[in-house]
Design a protein around this nucleic acid. Structure first.
Lengths: 204, 204
DNA sequence: GCGCCAATGTTGACAACGTCAACAAATAAG
DNA sequence: CTTATTTGTTGACGTTGTCAACATTGGCGC
């Protein structure tokens, strides 16, 4: 915890993740090199290898911070509406979209398919699975309370997950830009789209 | 059109796109180099520069073949059910998912955010927009026919688009694998998910 | 048929990249 | 204090995308 520069950094792993996250958010995954991250953290170009087995491992580390942030946001959104599954579902979805809009390049790293899982470290899948479990919980609660229709809970959850994931994807890649420019416009759109799912497309 | 090898290839552009598509589908975008594609096409490592300004331009070319394929599949699916917007919508969505499952790495190239548009060549956005227009058409028809609920047509289309896009994403990245293994299982799941959208999550 | 020009392909070079091996410094253990 | 382990550095290697200079070819006007 000494402030003066020394041979040993003391907390390089975190520093690398921080610098890496910043670079990714600035320039996109494709334009970030291991060496650049090392330089940004003030160390030489092979120092990262003492903390990550690979460039991919480092990117996974960066993505993991994003997943943590996502899980946290969703949890907060859910806790805002205790006992109201409909609002919980909506708020969780919006939180998800919000993160994708605020950090599009990080979101791209998380879900763009650049990461290859090394089988050893499947923490990413775990996290994603954990988020899904939370979603299933909301749906199950809603079914019990009688506000969501009956049926395979997992399938309903997957439906909502797909919708949100797809919308976030479109929002973060800019495909929606000439239909809803600003951030608020996109979020409002997200709300309306979520309602369409709740009420269904077909005429009742 | 001469068969014997000559200094001039004659149709190198297509040959590069073909070889490139094959390599991408085999190894994924991240593991395909310009040079490898050139070698696979039987030319030297800078020959591609006579046909593509950039590696990215070449990848865009490969992605474009994917978009053509997608548009074609969707068109076919729609034509299978004339005058029946509900089936059209479902079939188009399934066709979309099908392509993503059959060619996951190509799908990743198309939608994974690796491509950076050079502003000059916005053919990709055009194609994506064209597909969306088709979707809007289906919805509009369904609304006229009274099988889809009234409301902003674009928004309803965007809802369906998001759902399908998200599902395809999850399917092609293997996130669904331990929930629905085989290809048929995924397609069946896609059908059911699509029905959930049509009838909505909320209890009527 | 001839000569030239633009189009197309090749060779060689360069800097940047991911990664590895060998070495150096600093911390921790005894 | 000595020493072993952790952590960081230096230098090197093969690969990559890209550029400049050169070679070959087909098609054009004559």
């Amino acid at each position: 915890m000494s402030k003066e520069s020394s041979y040993h950094h003391g907390n390089l792993r975190e520093a690398l993740l921080e610098a890496g996250t910043k670079l990714v958010e600035e320039k996109g995954v494709a334009d970030v090199s291991l060496r650049a991250v090392a330089k940004a953290a003030g160390v030489s170009h092979t120092a990262p290898y003492r903390h990550f087995s690979d460039k991919n491992a480092m990117l996974r580390g960066i993505a993991a911070t994003g997943f943590r942030l996502l899980a946290q946001r969703i949890e907060e959104a859910v806790e805002l509406h205790p006992g109201n599954p409909e609002l919980q579902l909506s708020a969780a979805g919006v939180a998800y979209v919000e993160l994708a809009i605020e950090h599009p390049r990080l979101h791209n790293l998380m879900f763009g398919g650049v990461l290859q899982d090394d089988a050893v470290d499947d923490s990413l899948e775990e996290r994603s699975d954990q988020a899904f479990k939370g979603l299933v919980g909301i749906i199950a609660l809603g079914q019990q309370a009688g506000v969501f229709r009956r049926g395979d809970t997992d399938e309903l959850a997957l439906t909502a997950w797909s919708l949100v994931h797809g919308f976030a994807m479109l929002a973060s890649t800019g495909t929606l830009d000439h239909r809803a420019g600003g951030q608020e416009a996109k979020l409002a759109l997200a709300h309306r789209v979520a309602n369409h799912l709740l009420s269904g497309l077909a005429k009742r």
